[in-house]
Design a protein around this nucleic acid. Structure first.
Ligand SMILES: [Mn+2]
Ligand SMILES: [Mn+2]
Ligand SMILES: [Mn+2]
Ligand SMILES: [Mn+2]
Lengths: 219, 219
DNA sequence: CTTTTTATTTAGCTTTGCCTAAAAATTGTT
DNA sequence: AACAATTTTTAGGCAAAGCTAAATAAAAAG
């Protein structure tokens, strides 16, 4: 089964929204994520439901069916593999690859994905630390946690970012915070949740908003 | 200016038809090349003319404007660069890359093409021997000639193919005829233009139809 | 120079994916 | 419970890109 670019984008958006909040995904949330109107979402949802890609009950939001979920995952797999290609092979900075991957993820060819993955040496995460599903759609969610919720004076490893916007990623570049950086929270300000952190051999003050968008794991 | 996938495909088809026959390209020829109907072609031609991509006079066919020509060339450039990527980096056989390149050629990103070209070490021809335009749209048509028109007992170098269909390319693989092969015409049959040829260290009998689809250059 | 055949264009319809505005259902508030 | 606000769906339309069938122009044949 082949689905249109638009259908794939809806499935992907629903998948991501489903990951975030645990219950049925609302029409409005999808509309916001897709930067479109709620009425357009209702239209598309009906088409997806007719193709058995989502479970849909009027006024109660949608959830992906098994088929919808695996289709979404395969698109995400391609997106992340292409991001690795762009960064590792073509030398793109990590904040410039998302929009191009949004296009590349819709190229239809099983063979291409398989060969690309081999060429890249079977990477397990993309340049933003997000896991890359294998050809069966399996991937392990590493137990990562947001820096904002970390303990003082523990050594952590930066493993990903929540916000992958170019603005945020360039901010991290400026502070030399990369995936793989060692991070320790030196102090926390009760008043605004800002914190002083040690990144490898540098110290920085960062706001709550920053700390809410950096994933770390214990090391 | 950004053009739709369909518009790009029309421009490319018109460019190729223009290369072949020297005069205005007819509606029917475009329809056949695009595997669509003449009425659809007329519709699209009007849109392209409105955008100043083709010169169009009712009932007299079309020709590309300077803008149309350079747009077509940029799409062809991307197509051929991606084919090189697929063959040289991902190990695709040369008969399996065209359809995937048909999709990849529409990815929009100047930066991507530039970096891809550098990654591939600025190739001058694609896997089928067709020249790759540079970023300004310049490319030299190498003086190649069809094997069917070659002289006896002269040494030639295989430089390209006219038909890039999977069927023809697999036939060439079977006979170990590649780009770079040394070819000499040993004898010609007047009756049906079939010929005996020497390919590197092997001898083959080939029909006129085969000889009409192999490009060689003197060496 | 007509007539016939072929090529091209026009007219009208379809599907996909989107929109606005209005209607209906759900949820929140007194 | 009744009203208000919000969310979701429906109705009606639009643009892109295609189609078939009919009309018209150009080319070929007699
Ligand atoms: Mn991305
Ligand atoms: Mn990513
Ligand atoms: Mn090709
Ligand atoms: Mn080619």
């Amino acid at each position: 089964m082949k689905y249109s670019r638009s259908e794939e984008n809806y499935l992907k958006a629903i998948f991501h929204l489903q990951q975030a909040g645990s219950r049925g995904v609302s029409t409005n949330d999808i509309a916001e994520a897709m930067e479109t109107k709620a009425s357009s979402v209702t239209d598309m949802i009906k088409k997806l439901a007719a193709k058995d890609l989502v479970n849909y009950v009027k006024y109660q939001g949608v959830s992906l069916t098994e088929s919808g979920r695996s289709t979404a995952i395969m698109v995400i797999r391609k997106h992340r593999l292409w991001e690795v290609f762009l960064v590792n092979k073509l030398d793109f900075p990590w904040d410039k690859v998302h929009d191009i991957a949004e296009q590349l993820e819709h190229i239809k060819s099983e063979e291409l994905v398989t060969k690309l993955e081999a060429f890249l040496d079977y990477p397990s995460v993309d340049p933003h630390g997000d896991p890359i599903p294998d050809q069966h759609g399996n991937f392990k969610q590493t137990q990562k946690r947001l820096l904002v919720k970390c303990d003082l004076n523990e050594k952590y490893l930066c493993v990903g970012v929540k916000d992958s916007s170019s603005e945020f990623l360039r901010f991290l570049d400026k502070k030399h915070i990369n995936i793989g950086s060692n991070i320790t929270v030196l102090s926390k300000e009760e008043f605004d949740d800002s914190m002083q952190i040690q990144v490898d051999d540098q110290k920085h003050f960062i706001s709550k908003k920053i700390a809410e968008n950096i994933y770390v794991s214990a090391q």
